[in-house]
Computed example of a mutant assay.
Amino acid sequence: MAPMRMIYLALAIWGAIHPMYYFISWFNANGYDLMAMVDAWHVNAATSGLVWDLTIAAVTLTIWIISEVAVRRNWLALIAIPATFCIGVSCGLPLYLFLRSRPVT
């Protein structure tokens, strides 16, 4: 495996595990209420700005993935979309780059 592919894979794994640690810690402390978490994300202007920043990045990444999959026919790369919205851009972007950089057969 090429060194950059290994870096992308390592970043995707880190981007899945690190944020999940905080999400699970929050759920354990506050109960498993998704709407309460959404409310916590909008507790002040700074957190709302971060939420919108990540939302716009996630939508942009999704559009990029779909447009490239339509051209390249790399259907496996579509799994980066649910990874982006269920885990975060920190997982979805490096996962997509990992899948996109695989050798062409």
Rank of each mutant, 00 (worst) to 15 (best):
L99K: 00
N74C: 10
G92L: 02
A40P: 08
C91Y: 07
T84N: 07
N28F: 15
P82R: 12
L99F: 05
S25A: 15
V89Y: 03
G92V: 03
L34F: 14
I79P: 04
Y96M: 05
S67Q: 15
I66R: 10
I66M: 13
W41V: 03
W64M: 08
L54V: 12
T84A: 08
D53S: 05
G49C: 09
F98R: 04
L50P: 03
E68P: 00
F98T: 07
S90N: 05
W52N: 09
T55Q: 03
T62I: 00
A70H: 14
N44S: 10
W64C: 06
T60L: 09
A83H: 00
L97G: 05
N44Q: 09
P94F: 04
A77Q: 00
C91L: 11
H42R: 05
A70P: 06
P94A: 07
A46C: 13
W75N: 14
A83V: 10
I81P: 06
L93T: 05
I87Q: 04
L76N: 03
I87R: 04
P82I: 13
G31I: 14
A70D: 11
L95N: 04
S67C: 11
F85H: 08
W52T: 08
M37G: 01
A40R: 12
L76P: 04
T84W: 00
T62E: 09
S67I: 04
D39H: 01
A36W: 12
L34N: 09
P94L: 01
I79M: 01
A45Y: 05
A80V: 04
D33R: 06
A57I: 02
L54S: 05
Y96P: 00
G88E: 01
N74S: 10
V59R: 00
R100Q: 12
L61Q: 06
I81V: 14
L54H: 08
L97M: 13
I87F: 08
F85K: 05
T60G: 07
F85W: 13
A57P: 02
V38A: 07
C91D: 06
V38I: 13
A40N: 15
Y32I: 11
T60H: 02
P94N: 09
Y32W: 15
T60A: 12
I66H: 07
W41H: 14
L50A: 11
L95Q: 02
T62R: 03
M37C: 15
L93N: 07
M35K: 08
T62L: 01
Y96H: 00
N44E: 08
